[in-house]
Computed example of a mutant assay.
Amino acid sequence: MSLHPHSHLAPMTNSVPKAVLYFHPKSVESATVLLTLEEKGYGSDEFDTKVVDITKGENFAPSYLRLNITGSVPTLVVPTNKTLAPEIENKYRAITDVKAIVEFLDKSRSTNSRTHTTSTAPAPTLAPATIADANVASQIIAVLHAPAFDPLFLLLAARNAEELSAKANGPLGVRLRAVRDAIAGYLAEPTAGSADDADVPKPLHHRVKKVLEEKQADNAALLSVYQSTESDSALRQPFFARSVTTWDSDLKKIFDALEKLIAGPYTLGDQLSIPDLHLISWIAHVVHVAGGEGNMAGLASVEKEVTDGKGGWEIGTKVRAFWEAAIERKSFQKVYADGLH
């Protein structure tokens, strides 16, 4: 089947139902999905998109949490197989895990399955061709999505007072305060009434309320560090230590692990495959946070940040060859047309 997004917020029409991609253009995992859409040759009219502004906390709106209780982006809402006919009331399911979204998009458009498709672009199969390749692919994706390494924390990290002050007084500080205010508003605002009694507000669902309270606590903890002073060493020092470990140790281990797993020039060899999409967006984010751009010099920016300008460690040749191949792809140039993120 082809991907056919339909926004549940839009009025019903007589057209074939579409899927809707909820995403943010500066989100790492959203980039993974956008790269997949490009590489699979989906037409822009085959799916709908809705931007969820994570910098303003829109991903914690109760209406979005009902789709994705984690509040993460992206989310892909797709019509079920049995309700593709326009005359039948449509049912939808939300796919909230980026790995599952990529696999769904890969399977939904192929040379043998182009139901309702409008695009004439090639539909290459991105799934690993062999069991051995599938095993390597799983290892690479597991390295990139390991719970111990959070790409968002890399963005927020500060290794000293100077870095912390710059981030607290810049866009990240603004973002944290905007998210704080958004969550407080969602918790204070009653939800819409039911169809039977529209004038009577319904309380937040207990799961939604719990998530909002947890996110509120997480945000408050980060803001307490960002708003701290030099005398607040009990707050700052653990944050500085974690930031140093993230840059000086965790990133080295990940890059070194990738060097051992990559076949070259792409992760599994000569052909682009699913793990490449995850790796492209991951490296792009790391290069961006390191102050680099979408070129080979971007890797030097990462090396400089990891070694604090002292040298002694370099990104391996296989990762370099991978990045060189990745930045030349049309999908990369389209998704990152406005710069890395």
Rank of each mutant, 00 (worst) to 15 (best):
residue 299 L to Y: 04
residue 160 N to V: 07
residue 211 V to K: 10
residue 2 S to Q: 11
residue 259 E to R: 06
residue 101 I to Q: 00
residue 96 T to K: 09
residue 225 V to W: 01
residue 208 V to M: 04
residue 209 K to G: 08
residue 316 G to M: 03
residue 201 P to F: 11
residue 334 K to T: 14
residue 75 T to L: 07
residue 108 S to I: 06
residue 31 A to I: 01
residue 145 H to N: 14
residue 118 T to S: 04
residue 78 V to P: 00
residue 266 Y to M: 04
residue 3 L to E: 03
residue 240 F to Y: 13
residue 234 A to V: 13
residue 85 A to E: 15
residue 16 V to S: 07
residue 156 L to G: 07
residue 185 G to I: 09
residue 149 F to L: 10
residue 62 P to D: 03
residue 39 E to C: 08
residue 190 P to Y: 08
residue 214 E to A: 15
residue 7 S to P: 11
residue 339 G to M: 10
residue 332 F to L: 03
residue 23 F to E: 06
residue 34 L to E: 04
residue 134 A to N: 13
residue 205 H to Y: 12
residue 71 G to Q: 04
residue 302 V to N: 01
residue 217 A to M: 12
residue 84 L to R: 13
residue 21 L to Q: 00
residue 30 S to E: 11
residue 337 A to S: 13
residue 150 D to W: 04
residue 213 E to H: 07
residue 183 I to W: 02
residue 301 S to I: 09
residue 44 S to H: 14
residue 320 R to N: 09
residue 254 I to G: 07
residue 84 L to V: 10
residue 26 K to S: 06
residue 11 P to R: 03
residue 268 L to E: 00
residue 189 E to W: 12
residue 199 D to C: 09
residue 157 A to I: 06
residue 72 S to R: 09
residue 22 Y to D: 05
residue 203 P to I: 02
residue 178 A to E: 08
residue 15 S to D: 15
residue 123 A to M: 05
residue 31 A to C: 09
residue 130 T to Y: 10
residue 191 T to W: 08
residue 340 L to R: 10
residue 331 S to Y: 09
residue 151 P to L: 06
residue 315 I to E: 00
residue 99 K to M: 14
residue 63 S to F: 14
residue 37 L to K: 00
residue 101 I to C: 03
residue 54 I to M: 00
residue 99 K to P: 00
residue 189 E to D: 11
residue 122 P to C: 05
residue 314 E to M: 13
residue 131 I to S: 14
residue 107 K to D: 14
residue 51 V to M: 11
residue 141 I to S: 04
residue 141 I to R: 06
residue 149 F to E: 06
residue 194 S to Q: 06
residue 200 V to F: 11
residue 65 L to V: 03
residue 245 T to P: 06
residue 106 D to N: 12
residue 181 D to E: 14
residue 241 A to C: 10
residue 229 T to V: 12
residue 58 E to Q: 12
residue 66 R to F: 14
residue 274 I to L: 11
